[in-house]
Amino acid sequence: MVGTTIIRRRSGAAASLVALVTAIALVIGTPVASAAPDAPDEGDNKSLREVLEAASKGHIEAKAKLDNSKKRQKELTAQYDAVQDRLVSLTDEVGLMAAESYRVGRLTSVTLLLNSASPADMLDRAAGLEVMAQREGRNLRALTEAHEQAARAKAAIDNEVREQEKQVAIMARKKQDAERALAAVGGQSSGGFVSTTSAAAKPAPRNSDGSWPSESCNVDDPTTSGCITPRTLHALNQAKAAGFTRYVSCFRNGGSGEHPKGRACDFSAEAGGFQNRAATGGNRTYGNNLASYYINNADRLGVLYVIWYRQIWMPGTGWRSYNGGGSPAGDHTNHVHLSML
C-alpha cells in the first residue's frame, strides 16, 4: 500500500522505479544507504578478503582464549601454592600428634584402670585422650582433603597448558593461511608504519572471558546514511578524539569485505576528501600516523586489519606488502582502510 501510494504520486518511469525501491526498503526494513560519492573504489578481490578476514579473526579469537587460559593458569597456580603451604602445616601437625600418641600409648580399659589414682583421675585422662583423638581425626581429614585439592588444582593447570598449546597451534595455522593468500598476490614481509607516540585508546567492551562480543550493523553511521557496528563507531570516535579528524567514509552497499557489514572505514589522507592520487608530504605522514594509531591500539579496539600505502597489517602477520592493482584507491595510497571484528 505504501509502495502504491508513492508510485502514484510520481511521474515518469525513473521516478517510479526510485519510489518503488524506497517503498520496498521501508517495508522490509533494509536501509537505503551508500558511501559518499567520492568514496574510493578499492577493487574487489573477494577470495583474498575472505581468507584475510577468516585468518585474522581466527588469530584474534585464539589469542583471546590463550590470554584467558594464561590468566586462569595464574589463578590456579596461586591456589595450588596455597594448598601446598597448608599441606606442609597439616603434615607437621599430624606428625606431632602421631609422635605424642606413640609416646603416651593408646588408651585401653586396662591401662586406664591401672594408671588412674582415682575415678576422677580416670575420667580426666579419658577426656584428654578423647580430645586428642578428635583433633587427630580432624587433622587427618583436613590433610586428605588438602591432598585432593592439590591434585585437582594440578590437573586443572595441566588442562590450561594443553589449551594454550592448542590455541598457539591455531594461531600458527591462521598466520600461514594469511601469508599464503598474500604471497599469491605478491605480498611479502615489509617494514610497515610504526609510531611510539600514538595515544592510548579507550578499550572497547569485551565479554567476561576476554573474547569480543558479536555485533551487528545496528547503529547510525555518522559518515554516511548507512549503519555500522558499535565497536566500529567506538574505533572511529577514538581516532577523532586522538586528532584524526579528516574525511571518513564507512558503510558501503555491495561488494565484499567489511564495508557492507558496517565493520570498515576509509580515512582520507587529504583534508579535502578522497583524491585520485597518492598521498605525499604531510598527507602521507597523516596516513602513517593514523595507521600506527590503529596498530598500537588494535588489541584495545578489536582491529581486524589495516591497509595503507601498499601494505597490510594483520595481528598474526604484522606488516606485509599489498598489491591492490595499481590505482591510488586499490593500493590504498590515498586512504587508510580499517577493518574491525
Rank of each mutant, 00 (worst) to 15 (best):
275 Q>G: 12
287 G>H: 04
5 T>E: 12
288 N>E: 15
177 D>E: 15
48 L>K: 02
220 D>M: 08
55 A>R: 02
166 K>D: 05
248 V>Q: 06
152 R>G: 03
230 P>M: 10
134 Q>D: 05
259 H>G: 01
102 Y>E: 13
51 V>Q: 03
37 P>N: 07
174 K>T: 09
248 V>N: 03
193 F>T: 04
289 N>G: 09
93 E>M: 10
95 G>K: 14
77 T>D: 05
12 G>S: 10
188 Q>R: 15
203 P>Q: 05
104 V>C: 00
329 A>F: 02
240 K>S: 13
307 I>K: 01
11 S>V: 13
117 A>G: 15
69 S>Y: 10
111 T>P: 01
152 R>I: 13
152 R>A: 15
229 T>M: 06
3 G>W: 02
44 D>A: 13
13 A>L: 14
257 G>H: 04
5 T>C: 11
134 Q>A: 10
239 A>I: 06
169 A>I: 02
341 L>V: 11
226 G>N: 08
27 V>H: 11
316 G>L: 03
159 N>G: 06
167 Q>V: 00
313 W>H: 07
63 K>S: 00
142 A>G: 02
32 V>K: 10
72 R>M: 12
160 E>M: 12
292 S>Q: 05
273 G>M: 11
98 A>R: 14
164 Q>N: 07
217 C>Y: 04
167 Q>T: 11
185 V>I: 15
52 L>M: 14
175 K>R: 15
1 M>K: 10
126 A>D: 00
10 R>E: 03
154 K>C: 00
255 G>E: 02
18 V>Q: 01
308 W>F: 15
76 L>T: 09
39 A>D: 04
183 A>S: 14
274 F>D: 00
225 S>M: 09
125 R>E: 10
196 T>G: 15
168 V>Y: 07
28 I>K: 08
274 F>I: 07
3 G>E: 10
126 A>F: 09
242 A>Y: 08
92 D>M: 06
45 N>G: 03
217 C>N: 13
111 T>Q: 03
323 N>T: 10
275 Q>W: 00
142 A>S: 13
229 T>N: 06
34 S>M: 11
34 S>C: 10
104 V>N: 08
168 V>D: 05
86 R>T: 13
320 R>N: 12
52 L>Y: 03
31 P>S: 12
233 L>P: 01
209 D>M: 11
268 S>L: 05
165 E>Q: 14
318 G>C: 09
163 E>T: 11
8 R>K: 12
327 S>L: 03
12 G>L: 09
222 P>I: 11
186 G>M: 04
96 L>E: 08
298 A>C: 03
225 S>P: 01
192 G>D: 03
134 Q>R: 13
291 A>D: 00
163 E>F: 00
100 E>M: 11
258 E>H: 09
58 G>K: 02
244 F>K: 04
118 S>E: 08
7 I>F: 01
330 G>L: 04
40 P>Y: 07
74 K>N: 14
298 A>W: 06
304 L>S: 06
293 Y>S: 01
56 S>D: 04
25 A>G: 14
249 S>W: 05
202 K>P: 01
278 A>Q: 06
150 A>K: 14
278 A>H: 07
32 V>A: 09
238 Q>V: 07
326 G>L: 10
211 S>R: 06
10 R>D: 02
